[in-house]
Design a protein around this nucleic acid. Structure first.
Length: 831
DNA sequence: AGCACGCCGACT
DNA sequence: GTCGGCGTGCTC
């Protein structure tokens, strides 16, 4: 009797074993199945076959033969998720210590396996036949008789076998199953198409019809035109295309009523490119002037690099390569050329980019080169679009997929190359379960499939550069910028001196103001960057010294002046900006600290005639808003762009000649071992933004730590020196990549409960082995978050698997604590 | 995640 | 007396 291992959409559960009853075939690995789970019926995904219960599963979690239930039905005749993606998800669940269901969910297109979102409805005209049915089938039909769709999992409660009965009812045409996507979007989108009928093809008949009509005015002419157009298109023409040629719905309606045309519907894939084409500005798509001409000549260095990479690709097999190219050295062009090589050899390409803000720019470049053979995947797409793009990829309609983190699971066929652009970027790390790192998953996928993985960055992560140094990754370097453009001149402004001279409330230093003034005079553009949004970072009472804190989290509320709210950046709690102290009721409140909103106001005050705009999470809520803003900036309708690091990434604005960094050290004072790396990366990227055109750019960096090595090395764009210093620090302090790190956060109703439970786990871990060190427990940096108290501890060691296994074993002994514990393998943010 | 079971406060 | 709060346990 065959058995299958099934991943179910329940976070805490491992794969479960089910029996495949005789009347069903053996489902493929990667196929969706309906299985009973407790009182529910859920969709699961087959992750493995098992010829007998005792064959594979280790003794501990081998289920009793009698407890194994039957698979109810098989939803896919073949794999729904490619087998290689299933294998990848399995790896993710093991490596990141999360449930297999969560890992599989990350790889699934939206709404593909949530049973509570599948609905059954009575088919048309069935009402009268209900009386013919008996038993369960009749019960089901009775409960559907109102005509309203009912959730399948609710129906399943009518009793055993309901689900199977629903499916047979569907087979018999009595019931229709639907699965609406979020909102109004249905699983498939259709457009109206128009086709000539047999009569419409018959010229005699057409002439006859028109002769009988009086006049022959404009309407008649339109109708004749339409017939002409349709004659050249035997498969029909979309109504929208006809509209563009002046033939509207009325014309079509009258033609239809004359029996000359038929109007039908055709299934189309939603295309994220065309959908946003109206507000997506040409200038951004074609921001790279060289590309507009069509073919871009490679520099000698680029040519060499391409040759090396092409050789690696031709050699075949798994090969991780780090492409270290200074900002502006033309990495994107290499991605394009290499992708083309891979595509020509009949293999697929996956390109990962850090964030939505960057996706249109890179995706646009790929779109121009590869046309229709490109799909995009990112969280900014609607469910419907994501669904369609995913199906296109799975069908093999595309050669290249461009997307953010989650696209690493895209079902690309015959994958030959995975590019991870800006591989150091922290947005590749998912900060909720499954807490995977897109780059690391990409490398594993390449290893499993025997594909080339190309990691590109101007400021590689310590992890990747060390791998390159040790020879685990091949290293390709681009040291020169294209067209020999000079790097920006970087000037450090010591804010301690500025405070001494101009007072401690200064936000924009005289040096930065003067430089901006000069740009405005010359009609050049500036970018001002601060990695913190909002107007003020806290509200402070001068009478009692209290600050206004979030009631749910242990952080102060940020003032957002435009929204007239004080807001928590962690749980999104908000309240009106306080007028009196919540602690002592005193009226003497002071707003402390500043964010981008304040900078925007400050710039406007200093330069009343300047056109100033701001880009941060608050201003780009609306879909397409960022594209619009950046387009206006590219079209030089904006003089000064203020924003968070969102604007530091990827975009290419030739007429920006000044970048100001208001506070380079946001973060340097924090107890985060990656603070220096983050600062270095941000400053280097920013300095690379200035001066992409002919004029040499300038960067002005305001800081309280002018001598810090991250600031100094970034100014000289000296990555290797930074790497050397930072490696020394990480080794001395035993931080990654010198050791592997694992973080666990225990949540609790009270803080005492949380820290006591964490202490229990720590004790057990120390008792279990000395192969690793356990640090803590301690209050988590956000000791209260969303109303829960949190305590944390760390594990450091050389062997990840040992640490993970020990932690999982300890948690298995304490299931009560386990459900309140977050495990983060290779944490990026320890804040 | 659901869903049930179970044990304590304010209501018909 | 019971309706309903959420703590705890379980899902092949």
């Amino acid at each position: 009797m065959p058995f299958v291992r099934v991943a179910v959409p329940v976070p805490a559960l491992d794969a479960l074993t089910y029996r495949v009853p005789e009347q069903l075939r053996l489902p493929s690995i990667g196929a969706r199945v309906l299985v009973p789970l407790g009182k529910r019926v859920v969709t699961g995904l087959v992750v493995d076959h098992e010829s007998g219960i005792d064959r594979r599963a280790p003794a501990a979690d081998r289920p009793e033969e009698s407890t194994v239930k039957d698979v109810l039905d098989i939803l896919d005749s073949d794999a729904f998720l490619n087998e290689d993606v299933v294998k990848l998800a399995t790896w993710v669940s093991e490596y990141y210590a999360c449930g297999i269901g969560e890992a599989v969910a990350a790889a699934m297109p939206p709404r593909a396996w949530i049973e509570s979102e599948r609905y059954a409805q009575l088919a048309d005209g069935v009402n009268g036949r209900v009386a013919n049915e008996r038993g369960l089938r009749r019960q089901i039909l009775q409960s559907l008789i109102s005509g309203k769709p009912a959730r399948i999992d609710k129906l399943a409660r009518l009793g055993g076998g309901t689900h199977a009965a629903v499916l047979t009812l569907e087979r018999d045409g009595l019931v229709v199953l639907t699965q609406p996507l979020k909102g109004k979007a249905d699983a498939h989108r259709t457009v109206r198409t128009v086709q000539l009928t047999a009569q419409g093809h018959d010229e005699e008949a057409v002439a006859g019809v028109f002769r009988m009509r009086p006049g022959g005015g404009a309407a008649g002419r339109r109708q004749r035109e339409a017939i002409e157009i349709l004659r050249g298109a035997p498969t029909g023409v979309d109504a929208t295309d006809l509209k563009e040629r002046g033939i509207g719905p009325q014309t079509l309606a009258s033609l239809a009523s004359l029996g000359l045309v038929s109007i039908g519907r055709r299934r189309v894939d939603r295309d994220p490119f065309s959908e946003t084409a109206n507000d997506r500005p040409r200038t951004v798509l074609a921001a790279n002037p060289e590309r507009q001409e069509g073919v871009l000549t490679l520099t000698a260095e680029q040519g060499q690099a391409l040759q090396t990479l092409a050789t690696v690709v031709q050699r075949g097999g798994f090969a991780p390569v780090l492409l270290h190219g200074v900002t502006g050295s033309g990495k994107t062009e290499l991605y394009l050329r290499l992708s083309d090589e891979v595509r020509r050899s009949g293999r697929g390409v996956l390109v990962l980019v850090p964030e939505i803000a960057l996706t249109p720019a890179v995706a646009g470049g790929f779109r121009r080169v590869f046309g229709e053979r490109v799909a995009i995947q990112h969280s900014g797409l609607s469910d419907g679009e994501r669904h369609d793009q995913w199906q296109r990829i799975r069908r093999g309609d595309v050669d290249v997929v461009v997307g953010t983190r989650s696209a690493v699971f895209a079902p690309v066929q015959r994958l030959g190359l995975i590019v991870v652009d800006e591989e150091h970027d922290s947005s590749y790390k998912q900060e909720e379960s499954p807490r995977y790192h897109g780059r690391d998953v990409a490398v594993m996928r390449g290893r499993q499939l025997g594909a080339v993985v190309l990691l590109g960055s101007a400021t590689p992560s310590l992890e990747s550069y060390q791998n390159a140094q040790s020879g685990r990754y091949e290293l390709v370097t681009l040291a020169k910028r294209v067209l020999d453009r000079p790097l920006a001149e970087v000037r450090i402004v010591d804010m301690r001196e500025v405070y001494a001279g101009d007072g401690p409330d200064t936000i924009l230093s005289p040096a930065l103001r003067d430089a901006m003034h000069a740009r405005l005079e010359r009609g050049e553009q500036s970018i001002v960057l601060l990695n913190r949004r909002g107007f003020a970072t806290s509200v402070f009472c001068r009478q009692c010294g209290a600050t206004t804190e979030c009631p749910n989290c242990s952080v102060s509320l940020t003032v957002h002046r435009a929204q007239r709210r004080a807001r928590c950046h962690y749980c999104n709690y908000s309240a009106p900006i306080p007028k009196a102290c919540g602690n002592c009721a005193g009226p003497y409140l002071e707003q402390m600290g500043y964010g981008t909103e304040r900078i925007e106001a400050e710039v406007q005050t200093h330069f009343p005639t300047a056109r100033v705009a701001r880009v941060d999470r608050d201003t780009i809520r609306r879909r397409g808003a960022i594209a619009t803003l950046l387009a206006r900036f590219a079209a030089r309708e904006i003089d000064v762009l203020v924003g968070t690091q969102m604007i530091a990434k990827g975009h290419d604005f030739p007429s920006v000649t000044l970048v100001g960094v208001v506070s380079a050290d946001v973060g340097l004072g924090l107890a985060d071992f990656r603070a220096a790396e983050r600062t270095f990366q941000l400053l280097t990227q920013v300095a690379g933004r200035a001066g992409r055109g002919d004029v040499r750019g300038q960067a002005i960096v305001q800081t309280l730590h002018p001598a810090h090595y991250s600031v100094q090395h970034a100014c000289r764009q000296d990555y290797r020196a930074f790497f050397a210093d930072e490696s020394r620090y990480r080794t001395a302090m035993r931080y990654p990549p010198a050791v592997a790190l694992l973080n666990a956060v225990v949540k609790g109703r009270t803080f005492q409960r949380a820290i006591d439970d964490a202490a229990d786990l720590v004790r057990a871990l120390r008792r279990a082995s000395e192969a690793y060190r356990v640090l803590g427990p301690a209050p988590a940096p956000l000791s209260r978050l969303k109303g829960e108290h949190r305590a944390q501890f760390f594990m450091k060691g050389t062997h990840r698997a040992t640490m993970r296994r020990a932690l999982l074993a300890v948690l298995a002994d304490r299931p009560d604590i386990k459900r309140r514990t977050i495990v983060d393998v290779d944490p990026i943010s320890v804040l």
